[in-house]
Design a binder for these strands. Structure first.
Lengths: 210, 210
DNA sequence: TAGATTGTTAATCGATTAACAATC
DNA sequence: TAGATTGTTAATCGATTAACAATC
C-alpha cells in the first residue's frame, strides 16, 4: 500500500514495458526478466510488486495480466485524471502528441497559451485557448493536474493561478523552481539539468576508468 | 570533489537561478536563501557547496561570482561538450529551441531524423540531416553526448549506433529503457512516467490529509 | 528429487537532516 | 559583545541489496 515515489516510477515503467508487447492470459514474467529490462535487480522488482500486493508463482513468476491490472489500481484514478496544459510551444506540442491516443486514465481537457495569436489554433487535435479561460476550464472539468510547458519567465505566476484554481499536481517543464503550498505536488522535468548532468558524469566516468 | 548525481543536479539548478538575475561582483547569497529557492534545506546547500570546495563567509554567505564559476568548473568540460540530437519531431524541436543561444559549454553539432523527408529542413537554425551521416558527424565533431528524441520503436537500435560511434552519454526521451555498456551513462527523461507519478501521488496526498 | 524462483527479513548503502563549535 | 552564519561531524532516514527459508 505504501509505495514510495521511486517505486511508483518503476511500476509505471514495468506496466509500459509489459503493455508494449502483446501477451496471452497465460503469460508469466520472472522478476529477473523485468529487472533486466529496466537495468535493475530482481530483488527490487519483487519488492516493488510486493508493495502493490501482487503475488507470484514460485516456479513460473508473475502472471502478466493481473500484474498490469494491479499496477493500474495503484497508478490510475478510477474516475480518471483530467489535465490542463499551459504553453503551446514546441514542448507543449510534443506533450500533446505524446498524449494523443494514449491511456484513458489521463485526459487533456484543455490547452492554453498566453499568446493570443495561438488561441483557436488546433494542435494535435486539441484546440488552444486563451489564458483567460483557464480558471473556468479547470473548474468545469475538475482538472486535478497541470502541465507547465512555458518559459521560465512567468512560470510562477501561472503556477499560482493553477493552484488557486484547484490544481493539485503540476508537471513542471519550465526551467524554474516553483513555490507551491504543501498540498500541491510538483514533479520537475528539467531538460537543461539532465543535459548538464550527463555532460558532467561522462567526465567523471573517465577519471574512474583511467 | 566527489559530487553525487543528486548534488550535480542541484548545483546545476543553483547556477541557473543565480545566473538568471544580474548580480554585482560584491553580491553574496546565504545558504538558506538558495535553499528556499529550491525548496531544500540550508544544510544541504552548504554540503553541496562543500563538495565543490567553495567556501563562504560566516556572516555574509557565499560570493556569487566565484560560486557560479566554481560550479562551472565541475559541470562544464573546458573543451566543451558536443551533442547530437536524434529525432526532429516536436520534442526534438523543443530541445533545439531550448539550446539555441544558450551556454557555450553545450553545443549541438548535428540534428538527425530517420525520415528522409526531414533531411535538409532547418529547425531553429539547425539543419536536419539524414541518419546515414550520423556516424561521420559524431566522429568528425568528436560528439560525446546524444539526445534521443525518437519514438520508443527503434530507440534501442539508434542507441546501439550512437554507442558504437563513440557517444558516452545519452539523454533519453524515448519511452523505452536502453541497454548500454557500463561505460555509457543514460539519463532518462520520462514524460509519461512523470505524469502518471503526479496523477498517483495527488491521490495519496488526499488519503494522508484526510 | 533437484533446481529455480518467490516473499520477506536483515544488512548495507547512500543521502538528508540535525546539531554545534568556530567564525565573523 | 550578541547574534547569525558557516563548515563539518554525528544521527537519522530511506532506499537498495543480500540472503535465505518456503514453495513449486
Amino acid at each position: 500500500m505504501a509505495a514510495s515515489g521511486k517505486t511508483i516510477e518503476r511500476l509505471s515503467v514495468y506496466r509500459r514495458l509489459l503493455s508494449m508487447r502483446t501477451f496471452s492470459e497465460e503469460d508469466y514474467v520472472y522478476s529477473h526478466e523485468l529487472a533486466r529490462m529496466v537495468s535493475g535487480t530482481a530483488a527490487q522488482v519483487r519488492r516493488d510488486l510486493m508493495a502493490i500486493g501482487v503475488t507470484g508463482h514460485s516456479k513460473r513468476g508473475y502472471r502478466i495480466g493481473p500484474l498490469v491490472e494491479e499496477i493500474g489500481t495503484l497508478l490510475d484514478d478510477p474516475e480518471g485524471t483530467r489535465i490542463v496544459l499551459v504553453g503551446a510551444g514546441d514542448l507543449g506540442r510534443a506533450v500533446l502528441g505524446f498524449m494523443k491516443g494514449r491511456s484513458s486514465a489521463l485526459t487533456i481537457v484543455g490547452a492554453f497559451d498566453s499568446d493570443p495569436a495561438k488561441a483557436g489554433r488546433v494542435v494535435h487535435g486539441y484546440r488552444c485557448r486563451s489564458m483567460d479561460e483557464i480558471e473556468g476550464v479547470i473548474a468545469a472539468e475538475r482538472a486535478q493536474v497541470a502541465i507547465l510547458a512555458t518559459p521560465a519567465d512567468g512560470a510562477q505566476e501561472v503556477c499560482d493561478r493553477l493552484v488557486e484554481a484547484g490544481v493539485r499536481g503540476i508537471v513542471n517543464f519550465a526551467p524554474a523552481p516553483l513555490i507551491v503550498p504543501e498540498a500541491v505536488w510538483v514533479e520537475r522535468v528539467d531538460i537543461a539539468t539532465a543535459l548538464e548532468k550527463v555532460a558532467c558524469l561522462i567526465r567523471g566516468v573517465d577519471e574512474t576508468t583511467m
